[in-house]
Each structure stands twice: as C-alpha cells, then as structure tokens.
Amino acid sequence: MVADTHLIRTDLCTAEIYIDVFNKRLRVDDIRGNIVEAIEKAEELVHVHQAEKLIVKGRHEQYEKLVEHGFQCEAVIDRYFLGSNLYFFCKYYTNERRTSNQWFQEDQIVKQVLAIEGQKQIISPADCQMKKCSYKDVDALASLYRKVFQIYPTPLNDPQYIKKTLDEGTIYYGFFSNGEIISAASAEVNSLYKNAELTDCATLPEHRKHGLMKFLLEKLEEELKSSGIYCVYSIARSLSFGMNAALHQLGYTYRGRLMNNCYIFDKLEDMNVWVKNLSKR
C-alpha cells in the first residue's frame, strides 16, 4: 500500500517517480533535464502498472511543455520549491478517473467556506491534554486512524508505518482524554525544499464539536516556524465542509482541486489544496 520510489536516469534527464499501486496513480517529482524524455519514461511506467492518473510536480518553466503533452494544471502550492511555486499537473488514462460526479457540490462547499468571516473563537475542553506524540504512541495513533477512516491513502492503521514516518521526520500532535488519543494531526516535512504538508487529520466523531483540529494545526505551525519552515499546505477532502472551513479560518488560501486523487474515507475522492505562508505578519 506504500508507494515505491523509482528513479529515472538517462543521458538527458533525471526524475523520481512514486508508484502508488493502491491509489492507481504515479507521481513525478524533481524532473531535471529533458522534460519530454522524463514524461515518456513516466508514461511507460503508467502502462506497466496500469495506473489511471499521472501527477507531475511541475515548475513554472515546465508549464508549456506539460500542457503540450496532455497535462492540465489542477492546483498550485505557492513557494514550495524554496520560494518558487509548484504546479500540480495531471493526466488521466480512463474516462472514469477523468470524471467527477461531485464537482458541482464541491464548488458549492468551497463557496460556502470562503464566505465564512474571521476565525471562530473556540475553547479547548478542560478534560483534554494536547501533546507531541512519540514512538510510544504509535499503537494509539494507529487505533485512532483505524476508527476514523474506513479507507486511507497510506497505511496509518499500521503502527510500524507510523513509526517509519516518525523516523523520517514527520511530527505528530494529539489530544488525549483519559489516556486515549481522540484527535491527531501531523506535519510531513520536506527537508530539501523546506516545506511541510499538514495531514493525517482525524478526530473521533463524538469529540468533533470542540474544534480540536484547529489547536493541533496551530501547534504544528508553531513548531515548523521554529525550524525555519514557512511554506505549509494541506490537502483536504473536497466533501468535508468542516476540514475546509477549519483551514480557511486558520488563514489558508484555496489553491485548486485534485480530481479523483486518492481513496480516502470510503471511496475515491477529489481533494482541495490549501496553502499558507507562515512568514507573513
């Protein structure tokens, strides 16, 4: 279920490709050299693995070549590459994957979210304690994710996988009540480009009324800023009003939607991209 990494290296180009069999997609990172040859090599792997979607993390100077080869820009992450923008270019290989039946409904959710003014004042419940998670919490984290998500793009229901992400520098914070984790979120840090994705957001249904996720995301932002990381982003389920509203109220900017991006919650879903610049006053 975890994506495998494949390195493309020819006389003309180098690129990293993540082969995500579970989500039937491939993602190309860090294309250097001849972009046309890199795309051709990536599409060969698409057919080998019968992928339905190819994603390229493109740069501004690659925009025209990607459009020429059938890609469409779906979202942007500002300042991702040490200050320059990342463009999510996508190409589809089946009509079903290229079609979203929820698109209009998701447009309405974004419209409603963007109409919300200001940050809602919320108070953390007195019987909860927020703390940074460590190796001793991996079983409890896996249990939380297992309860909240019937399906998830990565195997967060496996304690060993969570331990591996901790080894790789991912930061987890959680709310604990009576010794149980009731809400958690993480920051997946890209040390090369100095950015982070706020992800793995989950709260048990009976505790969602308290708005715990906003506290967790703000705490993660504080830790990232202290490490000199100012580009943060999050990719949220387009059908989740609550998660999109939380990001908007925390000052994140909506930057596009990735169609049929991954299997999450209970099906293949579109995902909204939200971005924040932590260096702003």
Rank of each mutant, 00 (worst) to 15 (best):
A51S: 13
E52V: 01
L54D: 03
L54T: 03
V56M: 04
V56T: 05
K57D: 10
R59F: 00
R59I: 01
H60I: 07
E61R: 05
E61T: 05
E61V: 05
Q62F: 00
Y63K: 12
Y63A: 07
E64N: 11
E64I: 08
L66P: 04
V67D: 02
V67Q: 11
V67E: 09
V67I: 15
E68M: 03
E68P: 02
E68G: 02
H69M: 05
H69K: 14
E74Y: 01
V76C: 10
I77G: 04
I77D: 04
I77E: 06
D78T: 13
D78H: 13
R79Q: 14
R79V: 05
R79G: 08
Y80H: 12
Y80P: 01
Y80V: 09
L82S: 14
L82H: 12
L82N: 15
G83Y: 06
G83A: 10
G83S: 11
S84Q: 14
S84D: 15
S84H: 11
Y87A: 09
Y87D: 08
Y87I: 08
Y87F: 15
F88D: 11
F88I: 10
C90S: 15
C90K: 05
K91L: 09
E96S: 11
R98N: 15
T99Y: 03
T99K: 03
S100Q: 05
S100N: 09
S100G: 10
N101Q: 09
N101H: 07
N101G: 06
Q102R: 13
Q102A: 12
W103A: 15
F104Y: 13
Q105I: 09
E106T: 07
D107W: 10
D107Y: 11
Q108E: 13
Q108D: 13
I109W: 05
V110E: 13
V110S: 11
K111C: 08
Q112C: 11
Q112V: 06
V113G: 11
L114Y: 09
L114D: 10
A115T: 11
A115L: 13
A115V: 08
A115I: 07
I116R: 13
I116W: 03
I116K: 14
E117T: 13
Q119Y: 06
I122F: 00
I122R: 14
I122Q: 12
S124I: 11
P125D: 09
P125Y: 04
A126R: 07
A126Q: 12
C128Y: 08
C128M: 15
M130F: 02
